[in-house]
Structures are given as C-alpha cells and as structure tokens.
Design a protein around this nucleic acid. Structure first.
Lengths: 194, 194
DNA sequence: GTTATAAGTTAATCTAGTTTAACATGTTTT
DNA sequence: AAAACATGTTAAACTAGATTAACTTATAAC
C-alpha cells in the first residue's frame, strides 16, 4: 500500500519525526470500495474517518420524499465521512457513496483516539484540517446567500474543475442547491455570453 | 475577572490538572467592548479568538452594495471571530460587531500558539470545539437547501430562543437569508396558524 | 445493431421570496 | 413633547428558480 500521498498531505500541516511517521504508517488501514457502494448510510453510526487515496465520493442527505441533497464531493487527498456522526458516534444524518471505485485510508474511532495518545501531534493535525473545513463551510453559507445560482456555478467550476468534469451534472445541480433543469439553463447562458 | 464560566465551558471538552488550570488562567486577557463597537473589520487581519463572557455579537459580510449578510450570532459561552482570517492571519472576509456591551476573553494568535505548547491538551480542546462548529455549519447548509424559509425560522426560534429575543428582527431575517418584509409575513402566518 | 436505461436539454407554467413604497410603532435626542 | 431616527408591518408588482412534461443524446445490455 502506498503511503506517500497521505504523508505528503500531512506534511503541509505538521512535521513528524521518522519514528512517528513509521508508527503512523504501521497503523494505517487501507480499504477499497466499488463504484456505487456506500461507505456510510443515513441512520447508521459512521465508524471511520476516511482519507481518499483514489476515487471520488458524494456526501448527501435524503429527505422523506427520497430527494437527495449533496453536501460535499470528496476526491483524492480529501476526507469523506459524516463527521458529526463520527465524532459523537451517533446515527448519521448523511450518506456517503462512491461515485467511482475508491481507495481509502480508514481511521476507526477507537483507532484514532489511540493514535492521538501515541502521537499527540495528530491533535494539531486534525485541529488544523477541521479549521480549514469549517472556514470553507462558512464561506459556502455566505455564497449561497449573497450570490445567485449562475455566480455560484461559475465559482464552483473554477474552484473544483476536476470535480465538475468527473461528476454527472445533476449532482452538481444538487450540490449548488438548484434543479438540473435550471443548471442546464445557466450553462447555456454562460456559453452564449462568451 | 471571573474565570468560572470559561473553565466550566472547557471542562465539558477536556480535563485539566489544577496546575494547567492556573497556568491557563494566568494567561487569560479580558476585554470589554461597547454596543456597536467592532471587534473585527472586513479587510483587517483578525488578531484574536474571542470567548464571550457576557454580551452578544454578530458576524457578517457586507457586499459591494453595502448589504449585510449575517453568518453567525454569538452569545455567552460561545466564540466570536473571523476564524478564517485568524488561522491564516490574512485579511478578514467578515465583520464582527457587538450588539450589546460585551465582555470577552481574547486569545491573540501568538498567545494561543504559545499556549498550545505550554498546555498541549488545548490542541484537543480546540479540535473538539471546531469539530462541533463544523458539523453545525454543514447542517445549516443542508437546512438552507431542504427547508423553506418558514421551516428555517421555526427551527431558529426553537434552537436559539435567547438570540431571537435579544436581536432585532431584521438581523434574524438576514441570518435566515430572507428579507425583513418576508420574515414579517412568515411570523404573521405562524401566529394565525396556531 | 437494436432496445433499454440513465443523463441532459428546452420550453411553458407556476410559486417562494424580492422589491418598492407607504405607513405604524418605538426609542432616543434635544 | 416634538423632532429625528431606527425598527417593524402590510400590500402590490415583480423575478429567480421550481415544476412538469416532452424531447434528445449518451451509455450500457442483450
């Protein structure tokens, strides 16, 4: 199993000694999922925090009418879980499903708690990771309030060009909080305007 | 200066030794702001993470037309900052303004970095605090997508009854992402329906 | 290579929420 | 207590985006 992507990712947040690195690596559990498989299901407890080595997932909420609302896409070098369920070990609000065959590093709750004790620097790592995720989430809330759908779509396309190309358009509409029909309309406007 | 509220708040996340507690307390800086004073201004670097002892603040974004969009209200026992600006020490996207006379504990960036080294458990504290904040933020994004304005208002009222009573209605409309006129209409519908 | 099935587009009709504007109430200042 | 200003309400006209439904284009299955 190839740890380099994960170690490289970590190194932008904290510096580990080579002992810490090898200890950490000895604890890593890899797992493969197939396209369409669920990593987490709404109502189940989310048992692991998942770092994506390859592949792509969507995190979504399904309401009583069965409509899906996508909260997040995750690709290589990002996390994919229902964090709320994971940290409290209570039933998940969200589903996490693979959009491609996906390879993950999985940290179970107990595993991660033990790792925090063995390698205290990881507290800092995860603090910093979540700080960034929180900031991005706050900014998204503001964008949803201040910008109309066309502006939001343009930002999405430039911020996540790789996701835009890998994922069906109706899921992008769901992520943006609009219908696929309206996204279609926006796209034709964007093209005709240029 | 009264540390009890802060120590009590912390104790629901981590257990400090009495040495750690007194060290922490010796480092706390209190500060008072008057109603309408700015703690952070859009464009300035946010120099401190602020824990509210008493009072109330709003965190908001002002667009080019001068319209305000409220991201968050903060009251006693919660935090009030532009976290994105604070952690990266780059210019703030948001303003933080006092809605009442407000007493804070302020952690400057350098102060907090030093504290993380003196009391490593604080890494865990802030990791946990931000985990919760992130989860709440994600849930708010979903609510904004899945619920209409009336449902969002009802949830706001039951989740934050104290804020609803302390803050002008036009600010609540801004927080909910609707106009004050429409909030007024919703409220009359909620009353007439009951 | 035809038949299903999933994904994307277009257009007409409809609605939640905005805009504008006039008015009402409350609160601070002088 | 009048003036000035901030806050809140109501109603009519308007718009961004939803809904419905018919159609087109891909992709997969046999």
């Amino acid at each position: 199993m190839d740890n380099t992507a994960f170690l490289n990712y970590i190194s932008s947040y904290i510096q580990l000694t080579s002992e810490e690195q090898s200890l950490l690596c000895s604890r890593l559990k890899f797992r493969n999922y197939l396209k369409n498989q669920y990593i987490v299901q709404q109502g189940d407890v989310c048992r692991s925090a998942n770092f994506i080595i390859s592949g792509c997932t969507k995190t979504f909420y399904a309401n009583n009418e069965g409509q899906e609302h996508i909260v997040m896409f995750s690709i290589e070098n990002w996390w994919s879980s229902d964090l709320g369920s994971f940290i409290t070990q209570t039933p998940a609000d969200f589903n996490v499903q693979c959009l491609e065959n996906t390879q993950l590093i999985q940290f179970t709750y107990d595993n991660l708690e033990a790792l925090y004790i063995e390698i205290p620097k990881l507290e800092r790592l995860f603090r910093k990771i979540i700080e960034r995720a929180f900031v991005a989430s706050q900014k998204r809330i503001v964008r949803n309030f201040t910008l109309d759908a066309k502006a939001r779509y343009k930002i999405f396309k430039t911020t996540y060009p790789k996701i835009d190309q890998r994922v069906p358009q109706y899921m992008i509409a769901s992520y943006l909080g609009i219908t696929k029909e309206f996204l279609s309309k926006i796209k034709s406007q964007v093209i005709n305007a240029s």
